[in-house]
Simulated assay, not measured.
Amino acid sequence: MNQYPSMQRSAAKPEVVNAFMRGVYGWMSAGLGLTALVAFAVTQSQTLLQMFFTVDPATGAVGMSSMVFVLFIAELGIVFYLSARISTMAPGTATGLFMLYSGLNGLTLTPILLAYTAESVASTFIITAGMFGTMSIYGMVTKKDLTSWGSLLFMGLIGIVIAMVVNFFLQSSAMAFAISVIGVIIFLGLTAYDTQKLKTMGETVPEGDTAAIRRGTILGALTLYLDFINLFIMLLRLLGNRE
């Protein structure tokens, strides 16, 4: 999303665009780091697990609780609020909300991570980083205009959400496999598409306006963070070894 439509794309120097993208990747990495830290802390603490989740005393299986659903709603609220109000929000507020979202996501991802072995979680993370990095670089350097991908990827994303809701009731392993495969393709495409869109934002950001640049980097970090996390979850369902 271009937050600065009145600026000409040619206004920004290459070094300004590069600095903008470094800020995006830097904040995205900080968000992922906080997510990993919170998830690790919760998985290692029975007290925290019992505080936020239902834990079967016999098997130790971790399930969702009403509090987690409240946190899910809070996460969605943060994402929508950030996306809608980022252009007028104080940079510190935007940064704080993004980091809050990242921390909450580490908490709500805990049951998914506990369902798989630590080794498969780690290996899937590395694979995700490699695939994400490759597609993000493609989005940065390609001369092809990826704008036409947007509507197709959005329709695919809506289709995945609908299919996941349907499969919640059907519990079909074949359908779950298909959703994960298609999800990987869609989020790889979104990574390239969003990266190119953010590069365009970096070309139109008002040079010297530190507040606007920070808001833009936070919005970009949130966008790529969501692509990375969803790609990781889809790959984990395909490649992960369950406990």
Results as ranks from 00 to 15, higher is better:
101 Y>K: 04
70 V>T: 06
53 F>H: 07
134 T>H: 05
14 P>F: 07
84 A>R: 15
111 P>G: 15
7 M>C: 14
175 M>Q: 01
122 A>D: 06
159 G>W: 04
173 S>T: 09
151 S>D: 12
9 R>N: 15
120 S>V: 08
96 G>C: 08
133 G>D: 14
99 M>R: 12
142 T>H: 11
121 V>Y: 02
105 N>K: 13
215 R>T: 05
229 I>M: 10
243 E>G: 14
79 V>G: 09
160 I>G: 00
133 G>R: 13
110 T>H: 10
225 Y>M: 08
13 K>R: 11
22 R>E: 06
5 P>W: 08
185 I>N: 10
57 P>W: 02
13 K>W: 02
88 T>S: 06
106 G>H: 10
141 V>Q: 10
183 G>H: 01
143 K>Q: 12
146 L>M: 13
24 V>T: 11
165 V>S: 00
127 I>A: 15
93 T>Y: 06
18 N>W: 13
177 F>H: 11
113 L>H: 02
24 V>K: 07
34 L>W: 00
70 V>N: 08
22 R>G: 04
230 N>Y: 04
186 I>G: 07
175 M>T: 01
137 I>A: 15
130 G>W: 13
52 F>N: 07
95 T>E: 05
1 M>A: 10
3 Q>K: 05
9 R>C: 12
194 D>L: 01
132 F>P: 07
165 V>Q: 00
180 S>C: 03
90 A>T: 12
74 A>S: 10
207 E>T: 14
97 L>C: 02
17 V>Q: 09
208 G>A: 11
195 T>H: 13
210 T>G: 11
234 M>Q: 08
27 W>N: 11
168 F>E: 02
43 T>N: 02
183 G>D: 09
95 T>Q: 07
184 V>L: 10
235 L>C: 03
158 I>P: 04
234 M>L: 03
136 S>I: 02
61 A>S: 14
169 F>T: 03
96 G>R: 10
218 I>R: 01
22 R>S: 12
188 L>H: 01
28 M>K: 13
207 E>Q: 14
36 A>Y: 03
62 V>A: 06
154 F>R: 13
122 A>L: 05
57 P>D: 10
115 A>P: 09
146 L>I: 13
148 S>Q: 14
77 G>F: 03
81 Y>W: 14
199 K>G: 13
43 T>C: 08
34 L>T: 01
99 M>T: 12
215 R>A: 08
235 L>Y: 02
209 D>P: 04
211 A>K: 14
169 F>Y: 01
160 I>Q: 01
170 L>V: 01
143 K>T: 15
106 G>V: 04
84 A>I: 11
50 Q>E: 15
196 Q>C: 11
136 S>N: 09
153 L>H: 05
22 R>K: 12
118 A>T: 03
226 L>F: 03
132 F>Y: 11
